[in-house]
Nucleic acid binder design. Structure first.
Length: 270
DNA sequence: CTTCTCACA
DNA sequence: TGTGAGTA
């Protein structure tokens, strides 16, 4: 019985595939102690340690090629740099996952918010938000696939963000998405009237808008700024035939805006 | 049981 | 960076 072991024994011992060991060899990271007369690779105790090191560095996300140079020519300086780089990479990955987590909770939260379908209207105090414009829709133009590609690469992560439609001249629309910093359009902080609704056909939108203005008028809300139509893409996620919209308009800050300390005293109109 | 090579994610 | 199939 030899002291050295075969590749499959080594693989079982280290909980890796035989393939993987040969792959490391191809990359120059791990050479067998010797190859037997039957062409079998044989591994001794040194190779076991070596493989353990390689596996550890792989867990840190260091590429096998890099392990080759760092373990063989063995410059501790370089090895340290590799680990530092790997650390930077995992921090980047953590950020990525945190953003993903945020997206998921947003999707879930929006569903909760959307479910109170009793009274679509509601008054909100909103912080300033900033919008960046990414496309202009000419009057009567419908959004088509062609327009999206002709528009150039500047289409945002479409349908991961809510699309804001703001009228720009007669019949024309500008399309925006939310931005971090002040951009092409700003919604100032203030009181807003909002209505959320679920719509099956685009034709339902127009009457909803007039109804929105009617509602504002009968409640003496002064709307000065343009109406913002928000297409909430998350909410259509699980009901493809329906679109969720929010109508939003800032209330005139100059108007006396009879202080409403509670906003649930309207139930007369629908 | 091993080897190698190739195609595939 | 590996995996799986097929071969000898």
């Amino acid at each position: 019985m030899k002291n050295e072991i075969t590749i499959s024994e080594l693989a079982r011992l280290m909980h890796v595939s035989v393939h993987q060991i040969r792959y490391f060899e191809e990359k120059g990271a791990l050479t067998p102690a010797y190859t037997d007369s039957n062409q079998y690779r044989m591994y001794g105790i040194d190779e076991i340690y070596r493989l353990a090191h390689i596996l550890l560095l792989r867990r840190l996300g260091i590429p096998v090629n890099a392990i080759q140079g760092c373990t063989a020519s063995s410059s501790p300086e370089q090895g340290q740099h590799l680990v530092q780089q790997a650390l930077l990479d995992v921090r980047f990955e953590i950020r990525r996952l945190q953003e993903l987590e945020q997206l998921m909770t947003n999707i879930l939260n929006e569903r909760q918010n959307a479910d109170h379908s009793s009274n679509p209207y509601n008054l909100q105090r909103r912080r300033a938000t900033y919008l960046t414009r990414w496309m202009r829709l000419e009057p009567l133009a419908k959004l088509t696939a062609r327009q999206l590609v002709d528009q150039g690469g500047s289409v945002p992560n479409l349908f991961e963000a809510d699309i804001h439609y703001i009228e720009d001249g007669p019949g024309a629309m500008n399309l925006y998405t939310e931005a971090e910093a002040p951009g092409d359009y700003s919604l100032p902080e203030g009181e807003y009237l909002s209505a959320r609704m679920l719509i099956r056909e685009e034709s339902e939108l127009e009457p909803a808008i007039t109804q929105f203005y009617d509602y504002a008028a009968t409640h003496d809300y002064r709307i000065t700024a343009p109406l913002i139509v928000i297409e909430r893409s998350y909410l259509s996620l699980f009901s493809p035939d329906k679109l969720h919209y929010e109508l939003l308009a800032q209330l005139d800050p100059a108007a006396p805006a009879e202080r409403r300390d509670h906003d649930d005293d309207r139930a007369d109109h629908d």
